[in-house]
Simulated scan of single mutants.
Amino acid sequence: MFSAIGRAAIGRIGGGRSTARVPQQIQRVQITQSGKNALQSEFQGRALVILSSKRLYSAAATKPTKPASDKPAKKSASTTTKKAVKKPAAKKAKKKAKKELTEKQQEKKEASAIRAKEQAQKKKDRKVVEDGKAKIRELKAKVLTPPKSLPATAWTVLHVESVSQNPGVPLGELAKDASARYKTLDPSARETYNQKANANKAANDASYEAWLASLSPQQIYDSNHAQQRLKQLGLIKQGKHLKIDDPRIPKRPLPAYIHFVKERYTSGDFKGLSPVEAAKILAQEYKALSESEKKLYETLAVAERERYAKEMTNTFGTTRPVASSASSVSSVSS
């Protein structure tokens, strides 16, 4: 049986051609037909293989989508964490880059550092000054002022009278006038002024003793210590004697050399000599003394130290009293 294609080919051949060649043509047609059938079957087989591979590939691609998506997510998370860890390093690098200043910036930085140092030093100096002022105020608060004294000589009594009788006149002129009047006073008038002066002196002694009795030895010790310190600071004029003489405060012990000097001065051998010349002679004489002669003055010095320690203990409760603070002094005086 021939197919439709074979029959059509035979029909074409039959029209106007010889029949001898028909079997050959039929054979060729059969060969071509079989070749077409083989090619068609091969093509269909390859198509099936391609379709099956595509299906297999699509199935393999669709099924493991979830684990494939999980793994990259984990990797991305790890990479993000690594980047987060590396961020401080980047900040440090940026900070290091900021430290690299230009010359102008460096000069400005150094100038600001110098200004800050100067300001700190000024602040420190101000604190020292303020502390010094506070210390001075504390010392001045300890200084005690004795009661005002009345004129204790005939001339001062006359001078005070002239000042009270001539207000507004310069003191220099009044002093000259008082000295001139005092020289021309008769004996009776001078005696009157002497009596007034002696009465004033007695009143001064009484008021001073009453003032001392109202104070404690510690207060007087503090006052004398503060005056000495203010003199050292130059805040009290040299030669101005403000020390309070209180018989209750023990007198300091004298060393051996001072005992020797006092003894030599009482002899009267240094009359007419200046203090400098007398000091040179006394020093030479003391060096020339023998050990037994020096021992006498050293014994006097030891006795003086023992006396001073005993009196200080009785008065202050210790051989080395300490100056109290200004607050305690003010509280005691109030």
Rank of each mutant, 00 (worst) to 15 (best):
A141S: 15
G168K: 01
G16Q: 15
T156F: 07
K109R: 12
N204I: 10
Q119Y: 12
K91I: 10
Q24G: 06
W155V: 06
A89D: 02
S334H: 11
K237P: 05
S331V: 05
R307T: 06
G14D: 13
Q119H: 06
K176Q: 07
S328C: 04
I50R: 06
I26A: 07
K201R: 01
K287V: 14
L139E: 01
E311D: 06
A213Y: 05
N314R: 10
S188H: 09
Y297W: 03
D222M: 05
K140G: 11
I10C: 08
R229S: 03
N204G: 11
V329D: 09
F43L: 03
K122A: 13
T318G: 01
T156A: 13
P170T: 07
P23M: 04
S274F: 03
T184M: 09
P147D: 01
Q106V: 09
L158S: 08
N224C: 04
T318W: 09
N198Q: 04
E42L: 11
E209L: 08
S52G: 11
A278T: 11
Q195E: 13
N166R: 00
I258W: 06
K94V: 05
K237V: 04
I249P: 01
A203Y: 06
A301H: 02
Y193G: 00
E138S: 15
E42H: 02
D177Q: 06
L144N: 07
S223G: 05
S290C: 09
G172L: 06
L230A: 03
S69D: 07
Q195D: 10
V163A: 08
M312D: 02
G168M: 08
K127L: 10
E173I: 01
A120P: 02
M312H: 06
F316G: 08
S3V: 02
L48H: 08
D177A: 02
K140H: 12
A47R: 02
L235E: 06
V157M: 09
P147N: 12
T313D: 08
R248T: 14
G35Y: 08
L215F: 14
D125I: 15
G35P: 03
E191P: 02
T319V: 12
P167Q: 14
G168I: 11
V128K: 01
K142E: 05
R7Y: 15
A226E: 14
R115A: 13
V85M: 14
V322M: 04
E107K: 13
P187H: 08
A47C: 01
S52P: 04
V157S: 11
Q105T: 00
T81S: 13
E304K: 05
E285Y: 12
A175E: 10
T299I: 09
L233I: 03
L174M: 01
I220R: 12
K133Y: 01
V157F: 09
D246A: 05
I13T: 05
T266W: 14
E138L: 12
Q33D: 11
A20I: 04
A113P: 02
D186R: 13
K240L: 14
S290L: 11
Q44A: 07
I244C: 01
Y182G: 09
A120C: 01
R137Y: 00
K243L: 12
L51C: 02
T79M: 09
A288R: 11
Q165C: 07
K75T: 15
K295S: 15
P250F: 02
A303K: 10
K135E: 00
L150G: 03
K66Y: 10
N224P: 14
P275Q: 14
I244D: 00
K75A: 10
